[in-house]
Design a binder for these strands. Structure first.
Lengths: 197, 197
DNA sequence: TTGACAAGTGTTCGTTCGGACACTACCATG
DNA sequence: CATGGTAGTGTCCGAACGAACACTTGTCAA
């Protein structure tokens, strides 16, 4: 019953389809995709996948919805040395949910694109997307998104003579010493970067 | 031309539906959702949204797919105060799956933790997790995961006198010139970093 | 060896779907 | 005032859809 030996090939195709079309296809299209001759096979496949927790039924009607495990990615764990690639990519030793890994409090988390290179030395580059958790307070050393002159800016929070200041991580930029109270929007908790290709 | 004055209320409801069901509903259900009496209204709405770049048609069949702008979210929620930029074209979590953003070919993509700082100057740090798409071939300039001495290593692929070499992005590390054929495991397509807090 | 279960086939049925078309209500603007 | 474009209505049709059911094939353990 838990032998997804063949089903995970199906699951892979379903995942690829979803990545491209952002929807679970119809029974007929699943049949085409998997080279089934019959829709019933699709139906049973989906029921198996549902039982395994990859999809569920839509609350309001006939439609399948991907759930948590559908977005799990194989994770090659730290000790992959000595492994031949075939060994490694079959034994994708763990699973990894990018969203869960990055976002711990979904309702308080916002993704904000980073512009500029003022944090370059911290490995944060123009075009990266920062996961920011809303919080009025932060500790020195945190990377915070603050409102300065009506604009968002991402900097490291630091304390200078008892006052909060914003330190860039790039020698080409000056430390920002806000006149009044520093308005903090949130604290950066993660980073996502897509490489062009 | 694109007077989304009323349509963005519709768009909001569509986003909510998508957040819950991870799919664009059928014409009929859109009509229910928007309290239209006729499917044609739904159809025209979707055409307007498509023209404005929020959705597009599925390549293979009649279905609507959310695109980039669909996931744009103003940062408004939670009452950010004065003078902030109107909207940041980031995305609120809930509608947006980071996974979707990063992984284009799920069945070929593996997450691999990065160890060491040999790519530091490219903004890739120890502990980061790389999204790697399996591919035997790569182009010069790509960041590739290659198998060197039975270990995975992440470097930039370059060509030197007609031979593939692996260039670190850190002056402290030497260029790797493989003896035989360079065995490429895959190409890096994305990066995820969690900040400790 | 067999037998039980799971994967897959083939077909039928009523429902929902998208697309099309003619039409109406409502604004803006000249 | 009229006029033209846009949002929305009502209705029809053929195609695609999901569900159901009886059936076949393959596999693995008792």
């Amino acid at each position: 019953m838990v032998s997804l030996n063949k089903d995970d090939a199906y699951l892979g195709r379903l995942r690829d389809y979803y990545a491209e079309n952002r929807r679970i296809p119809s029974m007929q299209r699943i049949a085409e995709l998997m080279r089934f001759a019959s829709k019933t096979a699709s139906r049973k496949l989906m029921e198996r996948l549902a039982a395994a927790g990859f999809v569920r039924r839509a609350p309001d009607e006939d439609a399948w919805i991907p759930t948590g495990r559908f977005f799990e990615r194989p994770l090659a764990e730290g000790g992959v040395r000595a492994g031949r690639p075939e060994a490694v990519d079959g034994v994708g030793v763990g699973v990894f949910l990018i969203d869960d890994y990055l976002v711990r409090h979904p309702s308080r988390t916002v993704m904000i694109p980073v512009r500029g290179d003022s944090m370059l030395d911290a490995g944060i580059r123009d075009g990266d997307i920062a996961a920011v958790e809303r919080a009025a307070e932060a500790r020195p050393g945190d990377f915070v998104v603050a409102v300065v002159d009506g604009e968002f800016t991402l900097k490291e929070l630091a304390v200078e003579e008892g006052r909060n200041v914003l330190k860039p991580r790039n020698a080409a930029y000056p430390v920002i010493r806000p006149a009044g109270r520093l308005e903090i929007f949130g604290v950066m908790v993660g980073l996502v970067r897509r490489l062009q290709r």
